[in-house]
Design a protein around this nucleic acid. Structure first.
Length: 885
RNA sequence: GCCCGGGUGGUGGAAUGGUAGACACAGCGGACUUAAAAUCCGUUGGCUUCACGGCCGUGCGGGUUCGAGUCCCGCCCCGGGCACCA
């Protein structure tokens, strides 16, 4: 048996044997329970993996390996999210074609994953750019189309001038494209959308059924943005001869005939404040403004035109800047408040968004900050209609909902809640409006004007109609082309390929293909289903297989996909459920987000007048530069590992220096799974030392090893040390099993460290037959408990113990509560809550006994001397607290 | 501004309302060695004491409790998300 951890001597050997044995191929034994463990679908970047990526893959591997040893059928697949902008941009930069490039990169990923010993079933692997896969992406697109959930419309969309394509709302951060960083422009282009808004409520409701981090659920709820409120209609009145009469401060209002009657709807969450409405605002793009412009007279027509023209020139970012001062213009028209028949002015202002609600609001400056700001600037009245129940009346505006109504006629005195209900009934009874639920979520924009994606399988027919490509004609192959660079004119490069565009369908009709491709998120919205049945040519998956494996029991990836991927995949799954193709409404039962690995990164202090990048307080430098610079000019920061920061540690480097198992142990142990960690070579050495201690301990235990310990232990009279050894063995089995299940990998490793330390101590005791048998049990437990974290070492030790096969197929140790139970317990004795003594007591001592012994303690007496004992609190098996004064 | 996380020794972190600092890193002392590395043993929150011990201590201020890192209220700081969404 080797007496130290020497990864170079055996890690590659075991990886080779695992491969030869097809060890990680999925088993589908119907007698066993299933476990589906999955990592987020990675895009294989040219930089390869860093040790940061391993922080995702290693813990999933640990839990999958344990489940397998516990007797589950485990599905643990890996594939590649090959289509999309990152791949295409990189291929353009390298002047190559994305397909062979991705194959090369994916091969590197696989090599690195195998190097770290991840137990993926590669026989099920695929790429989203494989025609055998995207055929079914297209098939699902057509399913959505047939269900009315995929549609094309002319829309103002986010245009990324750098990547020369439109982007989904989810891909825009603070007015910039998340990927390219470019300021997004508005463009009007016909685009394909998925109607995710139909599923808004179910996407909120079903979050309650999944075991996800609360923060991620909250982000999804916020993104969907449900608001309960009411929508109602306001009638419009226009003063006759407005210019002159307004000057005379005495407008007479035109009586509008029914044909000319104008009105608009508003949405509000604060119907209770309707009596505080002192003006209304329309978004500049509101359709009613066109009509108003024809009837309001001068100077309003000119004012409105000027304001609308100006609004068009504002960039999306300027418009959304919250710090901007409110702007607007009076339209010359008035609206009638249905609650009290008051006539209030209608303004145009861009703080009201055309895309949310009705694009128009009732403005209540007394109880809304934004309306207040606008009212102040335009000299509009501010009216208080809510009186807080407690405390002083705050300065207007305030939005508190704990209050009663004032200045609200017959509603005075009602609470906010009562008034909302009462007014809700009232508007419904009078046909003025209805209570309504509004969502911020918008439909998912899926079109991309780029080459490297899944073609949208639609044919635009000569007669102006459109139809999905027949199932037998799928897939619509992405054509092989020489030049695939984006055109930049709002059309896809595919539009320039007549052989692709012009088609004759099976009925002989002429048509033109849709030339947009689908954004990459479509491809990753169902890959977890394909893994259940990855090479089915007749259907996307076999219903029984998907029913068996779904849902994913444990899904692991970065928190940056909180919205986008995780929302889209949930949406597709619900559609597929509605179609009867899957049996689950939620694809991912349990979700965990790993922390990032941060690299130590050198920066140079800025020189006089030097301009820095956004959010940086220094200039990034290489390690070589940092060494040359004067010490006082250099500082270090912990930042996410990335090629551009020059701080990447690859698994290849880490494995070469320390070994795969050391890397695995380090990443598991260094911090809780979901926390960011700082890469440290010292930490890696610690992991190596631990493994070496395990090898040494295993060697010591092996000397007394008896493979028949299980039967023999029952007939052996055990001395105290042997009993203690069995006890800590069973305690460690219990702790390790529970910790892995609850994703507490750091304490799982620490429990193995404690176990090794304590067993090593016990081996100094007088040898005995009992100790040797208990030691045999401990040795097997140690190796098997170590196996998910350090599988190469575990297999090496297992083999040197004379065992056949692999620890992966061995049975996970089970524990006995009786054997794990302590026979003595340490009782903390407190006086007035402060620790004064500890007592060793037999387990199961009665509360009376504990109290007796505690009161008899000399150390306690010092602190109770001269005081009267008022009360004694005894917590069985734990603590005695004596209250005295 | 709103919504999530988080703040514990020199460092990473542990702790179902019940002995704060497990486990590890770094440090210090020692063994082995010609020496170093590796390994092993001991020690390590602060203040105080010759010592036994005592006092303080989980971002800050209050509260609940026999007892609070943990629960409640009010703040501060750091990280992330959303942001004129009516």
């Amino acid at each position: 048996m080797p007496d130290r951890y020497e990864p170079a001597a055996f890690e590659a050997k075991w990886q080779q044997r695992w491969k030869e044995a097809d060890l990680f191929e999925t088993t589908e034994d119907p007698k066993k329970p299933k476990f589906y463990g999955l990592d987020f679908f990675p895009y294989p970047s040219g930089a390869g993996l860093s040790v940061g990526h391993c922080r995702n893959y290693i813990p999933t591997d640990v839990i999958c390996r344990m489940k397998r040893m516990q007797g589950y059928n485990v599905l643990h697949p890996m594939g590649f999210d090959a289509f999309g902008l990152p791949a295409e941009n990189e291929a353009i930069k390298n002047k190559t074609h994305p397909a062979p490039m991705i194959d090369k990169y994916a091969a590197t990923y696989r090599r690195q994953m195998e190097l770290v010993g991840i137990s993926y079933d590669w026989s099920r692997s695929f790429k989203s750019s494989d025609p055998s896969y995207y055929k079914w992406t297209q098939w699902i697109f057509e399913l959505l189309y047939k269900r009315g959930l995929a549609y094309q419309k002319l829309a103002a969309v986010n245009w990324d001038p750098v990547d020369k394509t439109v982007l989904a709302d989810e891909e825009i951060v603070a007015g910039r494209a998340e990927r390219s960083g470019a300021l997004v422009e508005k463009r009007f282009i016909p685009q394909w959308f998925f109607k995710i808004t139909d599923y808004a409520q179910r996407l909120i409701d079903d979050l309650d059924t999944v075991d996800w981090p609360e923060g991620i659920k909250q982000q999804q709820r916020n993104w969907i943005g449900r608001s309960e409120g009411a929508q109602f209609t306001l009638k419009v009145e226009i003063p006759a001869f407005s210019a002159e009469l307004e000057a005379a401060k005495e407008p007479t209002f035109e009586v509008l005939t029914p044909e000319r009657q104008m009105a608009f709807d508003v949405f509000t969450t604060r119907l209770d404040t309707i009596f505080g409405m002192t003006f209304c605002v329309l978004a500049p793009e509101h359709p009613l403004v066109d009509t108003l412009q024809k009837v309001v007279g001068e100077p309003h027509i000119t004012d409105i035109q000027a304001y609308r023209d100006n609004a068009k020139t504002l960039s999306e970012q300027d418009r959304l800047a919250t710090t901007r001062e409110k702007t607007g213009v009076f339209t010359g028209a008035y609206a009638i408040n249905p609650a009290n028949a008051e006539r209030v002015p209608i303004y145009l202002a861009d703080y009201v968004l055309a895309t949310y609600g009705t694009g128009a609001i009732m403005a209540v400056p007394g109880h809304d900050d934004r309306d207040f700001e606008f009212a102040k600037k335009f000299g509009i009245a501010v009216r208080q209609v809510i009186q807080p129940i407690e405390g002083e009346t705050p300065e207007l505006p305030f939005a508190v909902k704990e209050g009663t109504l004032v200045n609200s006629e017959k509603y005075d005195g009602l609470t906010v809640q009562e008034a909302q209900t009462g007014l809700g009934f009232w508007i419904e009874a009078h046909g003025i409006g209805q209570r309504k639920i509004q969502y911020k979520l918008r439909d998912w924009l899926i079109s991309r004007q780029r080459y490297w994606g899944c073609p949208i399988p639609i044919i635009h027919e000569a007669d102006g109609g459109m139809a999905p490509v027949g199932e037998k004609d799928l897939p619509v192959y992405l054509p092989e082309v020489e030049n695939y660079e984006p055109s930049g004119d709002g059309t896809s490069p595919l539009a320039g390929i007549p052989q692709f565009v012009n088609v004759t369908d099976s009925d002989g009709r002429l048509g033109k293909r849709e030339t947009d491709t689908m954004g990459g998120f479509a491809c990753s919205s169902w890959y977890f289903l394909r893994f259940c049945d990855p090479f089915n040519d007749d259907k996307p998956w076999d219903a029984d297989k998907a029913a068996y494996w779904m849902p994913v029991d444990c899904y692991v990836g970065g928190a940056e996909h909180a919205v986008m991927h995780l929302l889209y995949a949930r949406f597709w799954t619900k559609v597929l459920f509605d179609e009867g193709l899957v049996t689950v409404q939620e694809p991912f039962q349990r979700l965990q987000n790993q922390g990032q690995v941060l690299g130590h990164t050198p920066y140079r202090k800025p020189r006089e007048g030097e301009k820095l990048d956004m959010g940086e307080e220094g200039v990034l430098v290489s390690f070589e530069e940092a060494k040359k610079l004067p010490k006082e000019d250099v500082f270090y920061k912990w930042v996410r590992m990335s090629k551009s920061k020059g701080n990447v540690i690859t698994p290849d480097e880490a494995v070469a220096s320390f070994g795969a198992d050391a890397l695995r142990i380090y990443e598991l142990f260094v911090a809780p799974f979901n926390q960011d960690v700082q890469w440290s070579n010292e930490g890696m050495q610690g992991a190596t030392r631990f493994l070496t201690r395990v090898f040494k301990l295993a060697g010591d235990l092996a000397k007394g090893y008896d493979a028949d310990w299980r039967g023999l232990l029952d007939f052996e009279e055990l001395d105290d040390n042997a009993k203690k050894l069995r006890r800590i063995t069973h305690q460690t089995i219990k702790k390790s099993t529970e910790d892995i299940d609850r994703f507490a990998f750091n304490t799982y490793i620490s429990s193995l460290m404690i176990f090794s330390n304590e067993v090593q101590d016990l081996l100094r005791a007088q040898p005995s037959r009992g100790l040797a048998l208990a030691g045999s049990e401990a040795l097997e437990a140690l190796i098997l408990l170590l196996s998910p974290a350090a599988p190469h070492s575990a297999d090496e030790l297992w083999e040197s113990l004379g065992k056949e096969g692999f620890t992966f197929t061995a049975t996970w140790p089970s524990f006995s509560e009786d054997l794990a139970a302590e026979d003595t317990v340490t009782i903390a004795v407190q006086v007035n809550g402060k620790l004064r003594d500890t007592l060793e007591m037999p387990a199961g001592s009665s509360n009376e006994e504990l109290e007796q012994v505690a009161l008899g303690s000399a150390k306690v007496a010092v602190h109770t001397d001269g005081k009267t004992v008022r009360k004694v609190i005894v917590i069985a098996g734990k603590l005695v607290n004596i209250v005295a004064n």
